[in-house]
Simulated scan of single mutants.
Amino acid sequence: MATQLPVRIEFRLPDGWQAAPPDEVGAPGVAFVALHPASCATEGGFTANITIAGQVRDPALTMLALADESVRRLEQNAGTVHVRSRTELGSPEAPGLTQALDILATVRGEALPLVQTQVLVSMTDVDDPTKRVVLELVLTCTAEQLDAVIGDFQEFVRTVRPAEAEAGRS
């Protein structure tokens, strides 16, 4: 079942990407999915995709611990996972992390090597600094698709931000 994010965000999808209902495309537990239909014509018919998930997390958890948790979740759900690279970013007040993963997943009954680029973004609640939300922005594609879609993903990540307050609300 698709989930809602604990914070409102806004973003812009690059050209060529289309939003899709998470439950209908087999992505339960995420709040948003975008598909890149043109990529489906390559490498076994896998469609490159971007997902957004997020939840309230203990502020004491490090970004490395959260990244390790993400890898363990993938291993349980998708199969073999290898961490290709990991980079911490941001500041102590707004930490973040990117990681590139190689995944050997079973797709339509066949083993398919995939690449996943994850960006973990931490946001502290402005009204309650003891609450922290961590967003997971994720690109999943085949190695052959990566060069064609990584620039779009980077462009997408740059547009993600907290949503503007609605008129009349503070």
Rank of each mutant, 00 (worst) to 15 (best):
3 T>S: 12
3 T>V: 12
7 V>D: 00
8 R>P: 10
8 R>L: 15
9 I>L: 13
12 R>I: 10
13 L>E: 08
13 L>M: 12
14 P>Q: 10
15 D>H: 05
17 W>D: 02
19 A>E: 14
20 A>D: 01
22 P>K: 02
23 D>K: 01
24 E>S: 15
28 P>F: 14
30 V>Y: 06
30 V>N: 05
31 A>T: 04
31 A>C: 09
32 F>K: 11
33 V>D: 01
35 L>I: 14
36 H>A: 12
36 H>Q: 11
40 C>Y: 09
40 C>G: 06
42 T>H: 15
42 T>M: 13
43 E>I: 03
43 E>W: 09
48 A>S: 09
49 N>S: 07
50 I>W: 08
51 T>N: 00
52 I>M: 09
53 A>S: 15
57 R>G: 01
58 D>A: 15
59 P>F: 00
61 L>I: 06
62 T>H: 05
63 M>D: 05
64 L>P: 08
66 L>D: 08
68 D>P: 07
69 E>F: 12
69 E>C: 05
71 V>K: 07
71 V>R: 10
72 R>F: 03
72 R>N: 03
73 R>P: 04
73 R>V: 11
74 L>M: 14
76 Q>P: 02
77 N>T: 14
80 T>F: 11
80 T>L: 14
83 V>Q: 11
84 R>Q: 12
88 E>G: 07
88 E>M: 10
93 E>W: 04
95 P>M: 01
97 L>S: 07
97 L>I: 10
101 L>N: 02
102 D>M: 07
103 I>W: 07
104 L>C: 01
108 R>I: 01
108 R>Y: 04
112 L>H: 06
115 V>D: 02
116 Q>K: 11
116 Q>A: 12
118 Q>P: 08
120 L>N: 02
120 L>W: 00
121 V>D: 03
124 T>I: 13
124 T>D: 09
127 D>Q: 11
127 D>N: 14
128 D>Y: 05
128 D>F: 07
128 D>E: 10
129 P>D: 10
132 R>E: 09
133 V>Q: 05
134 V>R: 01
135 L>F: 05
135 L>W: 02
136 E>W: 03
136 E>K: 08
136 E>Y: 03
136 E>I: 07
137 L>D: 02
140 T>P: 04
141 C>L: 03
141 C>S: 04
142 T>K: 10
143 A>F: 02
146 L>S: 09
147 D>G: 15
148 A>F: 00
148 A>V: 02
149 V>R: 05
152 D>A: 12
153 F>S: 00
156 F>L: 01
157 V>H: 02
157 V>S: 00
157 V>D: 01
160 V>P: 00
160 V>K: 09
161 R>I: 08
162 P>Q: 08
163 A>F: 11
165 A>G: 08
166 E>K: 13
168 G>M: 01
170 S>L: 11
